[in-house]
Amino acid sequence: MKPPVQAKRPPEPNPRDLTRSEVAYRRIKTAIFDFVLLPGEGFTESDMAERLGMSRTPVREALFRLELESYVKVAFRSGWSVAPFDFRKLEDLYDLRVVLECSAIDRLCAADPMPDLSELKAVWLVPERDRLTDTTEVATLDEAFHAALVRAAGNAEMARVHADVTDGIRIVRRLDFTQPPRIAATYDEHAKVLKAVLARRADPAKLLLRTHIEASKAEVRKITIHKLHSARPAEGTL
C-alpha cells in the first residue's frame, strides 16, 4: 500500500540567506501563531532580544513590521504587546474566503479542459485507514487544499489575495484541528467538495464549501483566552 501523497510546500529559505531582522520577524510571528506568545501578553524590546539571542536593532525592525501586520502593538513607555484577537475581522476574513473559493469553483467547473487536480485526489480521496491524524499535518494539508483550488482557477491576483486571507486566519485556524472529530470531518468535507468539482457540479460544490467554512468559522467563535492558554506549549521558547 502506497503512503498518502503529501501536498507540496515551497522550500524553506536557507537561514544563512536571511537578515537578522527577517530571522527575528519569523521567530516572533511563529511564537504568536503557536501561542508561545499569547494575545495581550506584554514584553520589551530588551526582553525579546534576550529571548532571541540577538541585538535590539533587528528585533525592533521585526516588531515594527509585525505592527504593520496588526500582530503586535506598541505602547508609549510600556513596551510591546501581542495584539488581542479582532473576532469581527477574523469572521470577515472567513467570509472573504467563501467569496474567493466559490468563484474559484465556478472557474474550475467551467474550464475546458479542467485543470489537473490529481494531487488533491491523492491526498483527500483516500481510504479512511490512510488518513493522517497529526493535527499540524492536517492543518497544513487543509490550507494547501483550499489554496490549490484557488490557484488552479488560474487567476493570479485571486490567488494572491487568498494567500493573504489564509495568513490572516492561520493563528486561529489551527485550533480547528485539536479534536479528532474535526480532522475526520475535514477529510469527509474536502472529499465531497472535490468530487463535486471533478463532476463539474458547481452549485453543490459551492454549497458544500460554504457549509465547510461556516463550520470552521463557528469553531473560531468559540475560542476564548482560556482555550488559548491551554493551547500554549509547556516549555515554549522562541
Rank of each mutant, 00 (worst) to 15 (best):
A75K: 08
V5T: 15
G168S: 07
Y94A: 12
G154P: 04
V220H: 13
A191D: 00
D188F: 06
E45A: 13
A122T: 04
S70P: 00
A49P: 10
V98Q: 12
I105E: 08
S55H: 05
V150K: 11
R77M: 12
P4M: 13
E45V: 14
L207H: 06
V5E: 14
A75H: 08
L100Y: 12
A196F: 09
G79V: 01
L209P: 03
V220E: 07
V138D: 03
A75L: 07
E128A: 12
D86Q: 05
K206R: 14
V59H: 08
L68S: 15
A144W: 03
D106R: 13
E50A: 15
V172N: 04
V72D: 01
L228G: 11
R182G: 05
L228P: 11
Y25H: 13
L141N: 14
L175Y: 01
T133V: 08
L100R: 01
R129M: 12
V123E: 14
P11N: 07
F35H: 07
T211M: 10
H162V: 00
A234T: 04
T178I: 14
T178G: 00
A196Y: 06
P39S: 10
V72Y: 04
D95F: 13
D106T: 15
V197E: 05
R26M: 09
R56N: 12
K217D: 10
R56I: 12
A191F: 00
L208E: 02
T30C: 06
L208C: 02
R16T: 09
L198R: 08
V99Y: 02
T166R: 05
R26F: 01
V138C: 09
A104L: 06
K227V: 05
A215L: 05
S70Q: 14
T135E: 10
E69I: 05
L117E: 04
L18T: 06
T133N: 09
R151E: 14
V150T: 10
D95E: 14
E69K: 08
V74S: 06
